[in-house]
Amino acid sequence: MGKKKTLSFTFITMIIGLMLAIQFRSVQTPEVRDTRDTWQLREDLNEEMELKARLIKEIRANEQKLAEYETERKQGQELALKNTLNELKEEAGLTDVTGPGVTIQISKLDDELLLDHLDYTLSPDLLRRLLNELNMYGAKNVSIGGQRVINTTVIREIAGETKINGRSLKNFPLEIRVITETFEDAQELYNRMVVSKAAEEFFIDNLKVNVLEPEMSVTVPAYEDSIRIRNIESVKADKGES
């Protein structure tokens, strides 16, 4: 037998041996004989059952935790949204606001002071001027005669009556409530309003402006109607972005 022949035979027998061994190992999964008797089997079964119960308990606890986290997360989002919504509502004037502020009363002049006839008309120009002054001196939220003044509030005269938000202002004394940022602001506003020129103008219309001392807690009511926004549309959210 040539040397080369022997080598190739050796090579191939080696490969065959390798394959045989691997095949043997793969096919012959060692058979483990079960020699446990009934009681041992029972015990083992019990153990496994306990393990199963424990695992199920664990799974349940984890699922519960997961659910808790989920709700927490959702509520967190909800809370943030609600907070934002409330903030926006507050800013828009849809909520009652309480804070340090000043109350201004506009009342009729005493009858003795009146020269001739009774004519109590609160002119919208005057009211607007007063409002501007209030805003200038740091008013944050204002209500006039129980009507909240918001960005879209209109003060105008309709058929001889001064109206704010579409409601007549003819019940005197008229109360203007002003809320400021801090109590100091309220005091400053009070001081300015006491010497205000606008207040004096009311006298011409037979009205008296009485600025009350600043208080720690003045409540301004919410805007009663829904705010109508024309010519503005909400942007449609893209799908998948929620």
Partner: peptide, 9 residues
């Protein structure tokens, strides 16, 4: 070679 292969396997 066969033996070596089997042993190796």
């Amino acid at each position: 070679g066969l033996v070596v292969g089997i042993l190796l396997g």
